[in-house]
Amino acid sequence: MKISEVVNKTGLEALTSWDDEELTGVYISDMVSDIITGATGCGLLLTLQTHKSLIAAANLVDVGAVVFARDKRPAADVVELAEKAGIALFSTPVDTWSYAAKLFELGMR
């Protein structure tokens, strides 16, 4: 599924610029050590963590887009790092489970 479809149909707010890449899957975690071993090539990472090391970890496992649940927003320097790494950042007002349900309803598996 394309990022644009997910953005439009789940009501995401973009925090960085983004390319309309294909999302291959979803990974949900707030543990950095878990992300670094489990999120490889997942496409979309759904998390509550907003710090720099999260972006470093996401970049290392080739995550294309990060969605922060519950309206979480990273600091400006974190957004800048993500822009440099080519990782698209988005925010959703809903909690992790509600957002996961939206993705599932959309047909993401």
Binding site: S29, M31, V32, S33, D34, T37, Q49
Partner: peptide
């Protein structure tokens, strides 16, 4: 709170 310290480092 930052998502570290779950005892995965050395085992990983």
């Amino acid at each position: 709170e930052m998502g570290f310290g779950f005892g995965m480092g050395l085992p990983n």
